[in-house]
């Protein structure tokens, strides 16, 4: 599988570390922390997710990938990812 790193270009998935669903956002208080840490939508379909380009530019990237087909429709730097 290739991932389109916004900085480096198309790269083998082996260069990346996977974290998971990008949807949960860290709450600023204890409220919602359990949901944030443990609960996932586990979407069958397009999902925004975080990958770390560990063997490349060392940036966290938000990739939109369909979990049924592995087709990738978007990838942006996570820091620039508007939520």
């Amino acid at each position: 599988m290739r991932l389109p790193c916004p900085y480096c270009g198309q790269r083998d998935s082996r260069e990346f570390v996977y974290r998971g669903d990008a949807a949960p956002t860290r709450p600023s208080s204890e409220e919602g922390m359990y949901d944030y840490v443990y609960l996932r939508d586990n979407v069958p379909g397009p999902m925004r997710e975080h990958w770390y380009h560990a063997q490349g530019c060392r940036n966290w990237i938000t990739v939109t990938r369909d979990t049924r087909t592995h087709r990738i429709s978007a990838a942006v730097l996570a820091r620039e990812d508007s939520r």
Partner: peptide, 17 residues
């Protein structure tokens, strides 16, 4: 070492950009 580097990058790039 690698895991913490990744963790720090997550914190500064994703959690608190």
């Amino acid at each position: 070492a690698a895991k913490i580097m990744q963790h720090i990058d997550y914190a500064r790039q994703v959690l608190w950009p």
